[in-house]
Design a protein around this nucleic acid. Structure first.
Lengths: 246, 246
DNA sequence: CGTCATATTGACTTTAGTCAATAGAAGTGG
DNA sequence: CCACTTCTATTGACTAAAGTCAATATGACG
């Protein structure tokens, strides 16, 4: 049930077998959530630790008394509801974007485990730090540039991240989002999102068949988007992993 | 020299006198930086810890090979260059927005001090967490809403934060930024920024004399901006402080 | 007094939003 | 498997927001 989490943590600092086993044995319940439903409501008092096992969710913050819902980032399989599992509370909500399976881990034994295994706590902190970097990149990407560049950048990021959780390959990924959801993430209208997608297709930067989004040329869309995957730390994590394997 | 830092840390978790003294005695140099000059360059290898003592700086990320420079957040007096002082490196630069005085603390003794005084480390972590919350709020605020609301929101935030470092009062602050800098922060053009400012003045939401920006009615601009100061944790910090004083 | 940075204005272009309608795809019950 | 509903994608026409270019004030300061 927690294999996605364990696999991901492992990339951030190899876990001992014992930590791994203890994590696996934590009291947990599995929950299915339909797209558009809340996984954690904003301002909800801190409860169980939520681990996304399957599907994709988004961190959201509602504005203007609920009129708009800003998307702060994605939560992918293997990630937890709080960027820092030791934080007091969540200042934002989490909503399912696709059908999602969530594991609920009892808070108390979880916290206990982090105290017992500093390596585990460290892996979580690193994961949190990666997410902060991604948030900063989103902030830089959005608001500063034209919608088509933003979109291209987002797609590049999704390719790398979804690839890491088995939802894609070297130049493609299985797209879990509707255009309306993309629009919401970037804060633009759905109509405009549609036109941007067409534009990217006309430029030959993306191709879509079924729900597979493919980049005819990685180099070209990276260039167009100004995308440098360094901030996703894929390399560093792979390196860490390889070291661990030795 | 480090009084701003110590005062701020104190709000996040009262420091022992010893921690305070040791912090004060760290090997340090003081540096003056002119507006527009770099305090930390992006991708610069990790060096001394920089503490802003006076003035205001911004975290920035350059896009499209240096054409644009996105602003990720402010660094105010008492804050350090890295949100988490234990992080490996900085994924962004820091540039002075006004004349700034920076203290450079030798990295090694600083790290050592954090290990010796877990309370100190904890205060830094809390400060980092606050900054993450602010970044998320910026992400939500920008990109989603019209420029005049964004601007109003930013001004509300600045009032609270600058007030906390002695650059303002209950309904005003000494504005350290030019309109061009504001425009850059919000990712809009300087011309549009100017028109937005005029609009806010016409609405009676702000008033400017010399470099003092005043809100004729806190309630009205908060309402207009959809601003809720909770994310700045001013209350929590004040409470923590009061408890400490007992 | 002259110079430089900052703020302001006007005219015009581009980007994105809104409204409304239509076309396609996917899913459901019979 | 088909008819039907519903969600998703697409299009056109029009409006509003923001950018760009260029000129002109306004102010701070040596």
């Amino acid at each position: 049930m927690l294999s996605a989490l364990i696999q991901k943590l492992d990339l951030f600092g190899p876990l001992s077998d014992e930590a791994r086993n203890r994590l696996r044995k934590l009291p947990a319940r599995l929950l299915s959530v339909a797209p558009h439903d809340d996984i954690v409501r904003e301002k909800e008092p801190r409860g169980d630790v939520r681990v996304i096992c399957e599907g994709i969710a988004a961190r959201t913050k509602s504005l203007d008394g609920g009129d708009r819902q800003a998307v702060l980032g994605f939560v992918l399989p293997g990630e937890v509801d709080e960027s820092d599992p030791l934080a007091d509370a969540l200042d934002h909500g989490i909503v399912a974007l696709s059908p999602v399976k969530v594991a609920l881990l009892a808070r108390q034994p979880f916290d206990q485990l982090l105290l017992e295994f500093p390596d585990l706590a460290r892996a979580f902190r690193r994961m949190a730090r990666l997410n902060e970097g991604i948030t900063r990149m989103w902030l830089a990407n959005m608001g500063q540039r034209a919608a088509d560049r933003q979109t291209a950048h987002l797609l590049c990021e999704m390719q790398v991240r979804l690839c890491a959780v088995g939802m894609g390959g070297a130049d493609w990924f299985t797209n879990p989002l509707t255009q309306e959801q993309f629009a919401n993430v970037l804060g633009i209208s759905a109509v405009h999102m549609n036109r941007v997608m067409q534009h990217l297709r006309e430029l030959g930067l993306i191709r879509i068949e079924n729900h597979v989004l493919r980049f005819p040329s990685l180099a070209r869309i990276h260039e167009y988007a100004g995308f440098d995957p360094a901030y996703l730390m894929t390399d560093a994590r792979v390196r860490a992993h390889e070291q661990a394997a030795e």
